Simulated scan of single mutants.
Amino acid sequence: MATLLALDASSSACSCAVWRDGEVFSRFALTPREHTRRLMPMIDDVLAEAQLSHNDLDALAYGQGPGSFTGLRIAAGVAQGLAFALERPLIGVSTLAALALSAHRRYHLRHVISALDARMNEIYVAAYHCRDDHVTPLMDEAVMSPQSLELPDAPQDVDWCGVGSGWALWESMPTLVKAGLNQRFPDLQPAADEMVRLAARAFDAEEGRPAHEVIPVYLRDQVASKRG
């Protein structure tokens, strides 16, 4: 089985995780504006716990976004640098898919809408069906105002769950969304321990790519509001 390292800096949290023959070792810390300083020591620490060196890795992965523009660039830079140096493939993992998997694994939820606060009264959002640690997209990743959100088409008896910081904008959500949501977890953050599980499946499916081909997913090119 493969040995992988995943890292993430897409939110106020900084995390990394190792997948070694199905076993996961991870580190997670809320470190706003300290990702650059904290990430490499966390990587060294988790590799030491797993009793691995960099050369033992078969591939690397990182949270490719959407999320904090600065954090995504930090994670991409570190992951690409390691992948180049080790001559290993690199796998970008969706932060929204990782959130959905976290909700599924923690709370046994199956229909999840992941949403992250994108600032400027917008959210990054996608929907997933989760089963047996698999996540299947039901809605493409998008950036939109919370007022524009709609529930994906699904049977009437589906219990939707909202996860991620975007759900802190609950008061701005449409009435139909509020009525169709069973529960929400706005404090849950993207984390590398879920990303490394998704990356392991992607690696087994031979989805690893050369480091120079993997780029962050921003969803939004405009990072500042235009003045009228």
Rank of each mutant, 00 (worst) to 15 (best):
L5P: 06
D8Q: 03
A9V: 02
S10Q: 03
S11N: 06
S11W: 03
S15C: 06
C16V: 00
V18L: 04
V18Q: 11
G22F: 14
E23Y: 07
E23F: 13
S26E: 15
M42D: 01
D45S: 11
A50H: 00
A50W: 10
D56V: 07
A59G: 02
Y62D: 00
Q64M: 10
Q64I: 14
S68Q: 09
S68K: 01
T70R: 00
A75Y: 15
A75V: 13
E87S: 06
P89Q: 00
I91S: 05
G92I: 10
S94F: 10
L96R: 06
A97F: 11
L99S: 07
A100R: 07
H104L: 12
R105P: 08
R110W: 03
M120D: 03
Y124G: 00
Y124M: 01
V125I: 15
A127M: 09
C130V: 05
R131P: 00
R131E: 09
P137H: 12
P137Q: 03
L138T: 09
V143W: 12
L149R: 04
P152E: 14
Q156L: 14
D157C: 06
D159I: 08
W160A: 04
C161G: 05
C161Q: 14
G162Q: 04
V163G: 02
G164P: 13
S165L: 12
S172H: 14
M173A: 08
T175W: 13
T175M: 15
L176C: 13
V177L: 06
K178H: 12
Q183T: 12
L188V: 13
D193C: 14
R197Q: 15
A199L: 09
A199F: 02
A200Y: 14
D204I: 13
A205L: 14
E206V: 03
R209W: 05
P210Y: 06
A211G: 09
H212E: 10
H212Q: 11
Q222A: 13
V223H: 06
V223Y: 07
V223M: 05
A224L: 05
